[in-house]
Simulated scan of single mutants.
Amino acid sequence: MSLASVRAFFAAKAPDIAIIELQTSTATVALAAEAHGVAPGQIAKTLAFRIAERNVLIVARGDARIDNQKMKECFGAKSRMLDAQTVVELTSHPVGGVCPFGLATPLSVYCDRSLLAFDEVLPAAGATHSAVRITPQRLAELVDAEWIDVCQEVETEPC
């Protein structure tokens, strides 16, 4: 269902956004950045967590790391990443293609402020070889995401 559910999502909510399908895998941040010719930070990775009694998705820049203390402060409870099988069951997307679009189960989606460093980001689109180009603001609007700050500061190299 994965890629098909993402296609249906965009057909209904944002027909102007094209799904990019490549012949090569984009299952990791490094592979995706290389395949799309962008910085690793522009890859919008979607991470699935169990926090207290609920499952949530957090979309963050590709080169950012989750800060466990910020997570606890933001959500008021400890969090743990979900295993691959649970992620597939909840989203219908395989690990490497997980995105907040076309989900099998309604989940709360949060966008980390780290995404706002870019005018355009590339989240996966339900398969390990697909993505979309989108502004962080539009991404958040389409999935009704709340903006949060749960990532460690990313050190950028001077030009």
Rank of each mutant, 00 (worst) to 15 (best):
41 G>M: 05
59 V>I: 15
31 L>W: 06
65 R>G: 04
25 S>K: 11
69 Q>S: 12
67 D>C: 05
28 T>R: 13
67 D>L: 05
57 L>H: 01
51 I>A: 10
55 N>V: 07
72 K>W: 02
52 A>S: 15
60 A>N: 07
27 A>C: 06
69 Q>D: 14
47 L>Y: 02
53 E>M: 01
44 A>M: 09
39 A>W: 04
34 E>N: 10
35 A>N: 13
47 L>S: 03
31 L>Y: 06
30 A>Q: 15
36 H>M: 13
24 T>L: 11
49 F>R: 00
52 A>V: 02
41 G>N: 03
49 F>L: 11
67 D>W: 04
51 I>W: 01
24 T>I: 13
48 A>K: 02
31 L>C: 09
44 A>I: 08
46 T>G: 09
58 I>N: 03
64 A>W: 01
42 Q>M: 12
71 M>C: 10
34 E>H: 06
62 G>N: 07
67 D>E: 09
30 A>G: 05
36 H>Q: 11
36 H>C: 03
37 G>Q: 11
28 T>K: 12
48 A>M: 15
54 R>A: 01
49 F>N: 02
70 K>L: 15
25 S>E: 13
40 P>N: 05
69 Q>V: 14
29 V>D: 09
33 A>E: 05
53 E>W: 01
58 I>S: 01
44 A>D: 06
70 K>F: 10
52 A>Q: 12
34 E>S: 09
59 V>K: 06
59 V>S: 09
44 A>W: 08
52 A>D: 15
77 A>Q: 07
59 V>C: 11
48 A>V: 04
64 A>D: 06
28 T>A: 08
71 M>N: 11
72 K>R: 15
50 R>W: 00
38 V>F: 04
40 P>Q: 05
49 F>A: 05
44 A>Y: 10
52 A>L: 05
66 I>G: 06
41 G>F: 03
56 V>K: 00
32 A>I: 04
38 V>N: 00
40 P>I: 02
48 A>D: 00
35 A>H: 11
66 I>M: 12
26 T>V: 14
26 T>M: 15
42 Q>K: 06
47 L>Q: 03
56 V>R: 04
62 G>Q: 03
35 A>W: 14
77 A>P: 09
72 K>V: 07
43 I>M: 00
54 R>Y: 01
40 P>K: 07
27 A>Y: 07
53 E>A: 06
56 V>S: 03
50 R>S: 08
53 E>K: 08
38 V>G: 00
47 L>V: 10
26 T>H: 13
53 E>T: 03
50 R>I: 00
63 D>N: 15
60 A>P: 09
77 A>L: 07
28 T>M: 12
61 R>V: 02
35 A>L: 12
24 T>W: 03
64 A>C: 14
64 A>N: 04
44 A>R: 07
77 A>H: 13
52 A>P: 04
39 A>G: 01
37 G>V: 05
38 V>H: 02
71 M>E: 08
27 A>H: 13
26 T>F: 12
34 E>F: 02
33 A>F: 08
33 A>K: 08
55 N>P: 00
78 K>Q: 06
33 A>L: 10
56 V>P: 04
35 A>F: 13
69 Q>C: 08
27 A>K: 14
26 T>D: 14
41 G>V: 03
57 L>A: 04
45 K>W: 01
27 A>P: 08
52 A>C: 04
75 F>G: 06
45 K>R: 08
30 A>W: 09
32 A>M: 07
50 R>E: 05
56 V>Y: 01
28 T>D: 13
50 R>M: 00
76 G>D: 05
77 A>M: 06
43 I>F: 02
